[in-house]
Nucleic acid binder design. Sequence first.
DNA 1: CGGCGATGCGCACACTGTACGCAAGAGAGA
DNA 2: TCTCTCTTGCGTACAGTGTGCGCATCGCCG
Lengths: 249, 249
Amino acid sequence: MSPQEQAETGPQTPVQSVWTRPRAGREQPALSRDQIVAEALRLLDSDGIDALSMRKLGTRLGAGATSLYRHVANKDELIELAIDEIYGEIEIPRSTDPATWRADATGCAQSLRATMLRHPWIASVLGEMGMSYLGPNAMRLAEFLLALFTRAGLPTAEADQAASTLVAYVTGMATSEAAYLNVLARSGHTEQQYVESLWPTAEQAAESYPHLREGYAEQRGKDPRTARDENFQYGLDRVLDGLETRIIH
Amino acid sequence: MSPQEQAETGPQTPVQSVWTRPRAGREQPALSRDQIVAEALRLLDSDGIDALSMRKLGTRLGAGATSLYRHVANKDELIELAIDEIYGEIEIPRSTDPATWRADATGCAQSLRATMLRHPWIASVLGEMGMSYLGPNAMRLAEFLLALFTRAGLPTAEADQAASTLVAYVTGMATSEAAYLNVLARSGHTEQQYVESLWPTAEQAAESYPHLREGYAEQRGKDPRTARDENFQYGLDRVLDGLETRIIH
DNA sequence: CGGCGATGCGCACACTGTACGCAAGAGAGA
DNA sequence: TCTCTCTTGCGTACAGTGTGCGCATCGCCG
């Protein structure tokens, strides 16, 4: 008797068998918050923010959708946990030398950007998650930057402003890059192909804007990936230049 | 015979009357794309991004939900139109004097921030809308900044990078502020009340981070609104300082 | 063994975006 | 004036969504 035939006896009189009867003991190490967040991250990274639904996540974990709510208050909280998880990927220099503040800040900023671009879906949620900066990993980053600028010689209040400035620049830049990577991913093309296919539209939109047209013309033919890297680095250097004027007297 | 009684005759034999019979001629000036975007903006500004649904929007316009699709391809496109609409609110200085580039950039940056904070829901969508910078008003802003830095003496390619840097800083700062304003609005309290109620949580989260604790202690008691304004201005000045090093030789 | 708290899950509800096809008005041509 | 096409509105329907509720079952503790 196959399992199918058993199933066909109908739901009124469910026939118990090895296949249908739940095993003694929880079969899985059960569900845990960490496991849920980890799987959510996998789903987000591979398919983007729209692909994350509680049902799909539950299925992936071999669980029902509503089981997740025993470990997580709601979807937003799950996303905040995921956000802090990726904050944890940011490399924070171990240096405590005041003289290397600029190199340390540069490394941290580059790592922050790289992390955001590795998980471009965060761009879609940073704007609605007001509390994400309270997560432990986010605080670790804030503490590091605050210490860095304090060591470099700024008073506490100004060190805070300097850190905000740096983070605002990096997240601003990375957010717009990530938004672009999101639509790029949806297009299914390579970055080269996508940029090429976008040219006519962009040129038409810039028709009556001479400076924009010239800017476009100048960028055409460049490798878009390295152009993005250079743009980021240019702005980062300028921001640090600006902060440096307040550090070196 | 009241309209209700007529209605109770059932859907099989609908009784026509003055009340139920459609009027001759389109009663309304019909639906237009501009009208739809305008009403969407009202809804977004008053109730936030989650409150925008096609059905609710249709009802507000006295139309069915799916009628909107005659004028707008889908919800995302509607939001892109709304975004560009608010880009149109940004004040762009008319000056063409190279000497005032810094004042002009400051004014434009402040207006960009103010506009984003007046419509905090854009923070929730900037990260998913990759094409919003192709809208006419967004291009107008880009053209202005490009012209500004070109006039100030930068070559085209660098003027482009300078404009990106400035915009990244402003949007980064405004995005995190807007995210905060979003949760503030949901809390239903004033900013003062909200900050006060957040203190214990924040202090607990910062427990093992000495610099953060000191930073918090220093900010306590300040008016949060003016503190935000000052933080923004500080970073803006630093970013412009950094760009200035490339302009003045 | 008895019960108790923690956990998983089926069901249900209210709601979402939007594809499809019908109907009715507007304008054009005969 | 009659018809024929094009545009516009909308009712219905489908395949989802987040999540509240209550039941069944587990491991553990007395």
